[in-house]
């Protein structure tokens, strides 16, 4: 009995700070925003608080908000897919082919963008992608006579910038999964006559699913809420639900509408994760 209660205290002492931290940094701000999203007006000015659903209704009655939400989801899908297509082979190569010091050096190169400010990264891309920019000049150096390459203010520019920003997540999570694969499994498969393709599809890919899933979630969720990358790289083509939410806070101080749109975005993310979870669970349990 005494041991039992001491255990409980120990658990409380050990986990308490973490829960307190979560409560202060996540739960409190989120619940304040949830409260505002059901208010008629924001926290500024002299007016009584008044319950209202109108900001949630706005999303369902205003077509352009739904269009922009869809656009953001599409953008998240495209970025995640490209990150998988580039990140998985890169992680595979790093985990199974490169050894020793080279691997450290390559890791450094992959993580390097993380150490620079996100805004600086995006502004650098505007220099690369603009007409007579780095890309334009490089291409013309190789093939003169091509028409000017101008990717500024385009959807492609947004995708390039976002993939570059979020790719390290995919490489790192996939790397961890791939590195944990027991070499003897692959040797066994080979000794039984399996071809490389079969090994990849039947052994490596299924075992890498946790990494792919973790990377996809880490990328998809922030990308659909992103706002400064689309704005800076997309210009007139860069309006997404994230920029609309941001403008509610920065331009008109309309916290209720900004909050309501954020929670709708959150609800959609949770729905997507819930829909994906049976598939993921199946894969996780087979490993």
């Amino acid at each position: 009995m005494r041991i039992e209660s001491r255990r409980r205290w120990a658990i409380a002492w050990l986990t308490g700070p973490a829960y307190l931290w979560l409560a202060v940094t996540i739960f409190l701000p989120l619940s304040a925003m949830l409260y505002f999203s059901f208010q008629k007006k924001g926290p500024f000015g002299r007016h009584a608080s008044e319950f209202s659903l109108k900001h949630y209704e706005a999303f369902f009655t205003k077509g352009y908000l739904q269009d922009l939400m869809w656009r953001s989801l599409e953008m998240g899908f495209h970025v995640t897919l490209l990150c998988i297509l580039i990140g998985f082979p890169a992680a595979y190569w790093l985990a199974r082919r490169i050894r020793g010091r080279w691997r450290e050096a390559l890791f450094l190169l992959i993580v390097l963008p993380f150490w620079s400010n996100a805004l600086v990264r995006i502004f650098s891309w505007t220099i690369v992608l603009r007409p007579d920019g780095v890309l334009d000049r490089a291409v013309h150096l190789v093939i003169p006579g091509l028409p000017t390459i101008d990717l500024t203010d385009s959807y492609a520019a947004i995708i390039i910038g976002l993939v570059h920003s979020y790719l390290p997540y995919m490489i790192l999570t996939c790397f961890l999964s791939l590195q944990a694969i027991d070499e003897s499994l692959l040797e066994a498969a080979r000794s039984l006559g399996a071809r490389s393709w079969t090994i990849l599809a039947r052994i490596i890919l299924p075992l890498a699913v946790p990494g792919l899933a973790a990377g996809s979630i880490l990328i998809f969720v922030p990308v659909i809420g992103s706002f400064f990358e689309p704005r800076l790289l997309g210009g007139p083509k860069g309006t997404v639900i994230g920029t609309v939410i941001e403008e509610q806070f920065t331009v008109v101080s309309n916290w209720p509408l900004g909050g309501a749109l954020s929670f709708i975005l959150l609800a959609i993310v949770l729905l997507i994760l819930a829909a994906a979870s049976p598939v993921l669970k199946k894969h996780m349990s087979t490993t």
């Binding site: 352009y64 007139p236 083509k237 509610q248």
Partner: peptide, 21 residues
């Protein structure tokens, strides 16, 4: 007024959504 600002922003955001299409 706040209401007018919100209306103006809504018009502009709707327009920008159309530009982005």
């Amino acid at each position: 007024s706040d209401e007018t600002r919100e209306t103006f922003l809504e018009i502009w955001e709707e327009t920008k959504a159309w530009y982005a299409e």
